[in-house]
Structure formats: C-alpha cells, structure tokens
Design a protein around this nucleic acid. Structure first.
Lengths: 109, 109
DNA sequence: ATACTTAATCGTAATATTGCAATAAACAAA
DNA sequence: TTTGTTTATTGCAATATTACGATTAAGTAT
C-alpha cells in the first residue's frame, strides 16, 4: 500500500523513525555534514558541492526543516541554513537511547 | 525519479543512510525493540505483538537481515531472530560519529 | 501418508520518495 | 524600471516502499 500504519505504533516508535528519516538519504547526510563542516552557515553552495539540481536540494532542505533539525535565516537574496542545536541535541538523545539498548540479554544466536 | 543517485555521494554517506533506513520505519523500530526486550530470542510472536500481517513482518525482518543488524536461526518449524551484536556495535559507532559532530562551530542562527 | 504450524515468497495495489525542468517569488544592483 | 541572483514551488515521471492475501516450503505431529 505504501502507507505506514502509524496508529498501531507508539509515539516513541514513530518519533524515532521520523528522526531517522532525516539521515536515511545520502543527500541529507551530505547537507548536514556540509553545514557542520563550514564554520560559517551554509548558503546556496550546496548545489555546487553536491551534484543535485537546485530544486532537489531545496526539497531536501525543506524536509530537514520540517523534521526540525535545521533552520534557515534569510540574508538578503540568499538563505543561511544552520543546525537547530536544541533539536539536534534532543534528536541525539532519542536516537542514542534507542541505539544503546542493552545487547547482553540477547543470547541465543 | 525515485532513484537515489548513490554514485555522487561518498561511501560513508551512503553507508550512514543505509544504516539509518533500518530504523526509519516504526515497524522495524518495534521489531528491534522487541528483540531487545525479550531476554530469549524472538520467534513468530512479532505478528501478534505488532499488528501487521505475517508477510509484512517477514518482509521487514528480511530488510533488517539484509542490512545485517539481525540474524535468524531456524529452530524446528519456527525461526529465532536476534541482534547481530558485532554489526549492531559497528552501526552504533558509525551513526554516533555522525551524530556527534561538533555543533559549536555553527554560529550564525 | 495426512494434517497442522510456521515462515518465506510471490503477485498486486496503493502510497511515498526522489529527481529535474520550468516557473515563480523576493531581493539586489544597475 | 530592468536585469540578475538566489531560493521556493509546481508539475510531472520514474522508482521505491509499504502492506496484504495467497501460495509455497519446510518441518512436526498424528
């Protein structure tokens, strides 16, 4: 069907999967890494840096904005994107809580 | 197009996004949590636990197996799934390296 | 052998995602 | 105003994902 049945999962499960989607595409990973790597905030050079069309990059930026991990400041004619530090930290904590589940219990294989 | 242009990204970026896909769906999050929570390995009760059809669960299990995070042991007529500890640890390290990028540099917004 | 249980696979339908060209919007510069 | 620059949006087209019923495969039990 292509339609996720979110109702049958817990809020936490839906939240984790939503956050994971942010970096479940290499372009979004690249965008986030580039924002991290440039000490000054990012503008429109993502299109040159990554080899995708401007509209495609813009769409990925929109998704990251919707999820809440980045925010954009309009600076004249260009837009400056940066990490939303609070949200990033919260995301990290949620994901880490999931990743750090105790592995020692599973002992059959 | 619906076709990810993997060639234009680094191996690391592709790897991160691939791993993230493992928990970019609430059903797979639920499956992994359930394997973690039951001290004994998982069998076919995932279908009862999560409200999805048997074939759907089986498909998600296959994806998790393909990504490498779980492995299944045939035990008579049922199958026992568990976390692949080595792979899980490696995944954690790769994801954490990405999540723990220094946030202090981004200082425009 | 037959019947039952369990999980994988196949086929199909529907929705989601990715990508790009073209256009629009918003601002800057001349 | 006109021109250029930059980003967002719209409108496709193509591929991917999700989900389920039906079937198959493999083992158990009778």
């Amino acid at each position: 069907m292509g339609l996720v049945r979110s109702e049958i999962f817990t809020d936490q499960q839906n939240k984790i999967s939503l956050l994971a989607k942010a970096f479940a595409h290499p372009a979004r990973v690249a965008i986030l890494q580039h924002i991290f790597n440039t000490d000054t905030c990012i503008c429109g050079d993502l299109v040159d840096e990554i080899g995708l069309a401007q509209s495609t990059i813009s769409q990925h930026l929109k998704e990251l904005k919707t999820i809440g991990l980045i925010k954009g400041n309009i600076e004249g004619t260009s837009v400056c994107y940066c990490i939303d530090k609070e949200q990033w930290t919260e995301m990290k904590s949620i994901i880490n809580q999931f990743l750090n589940q105790d592995i020692t219990n599973t002992n059959c294989c």
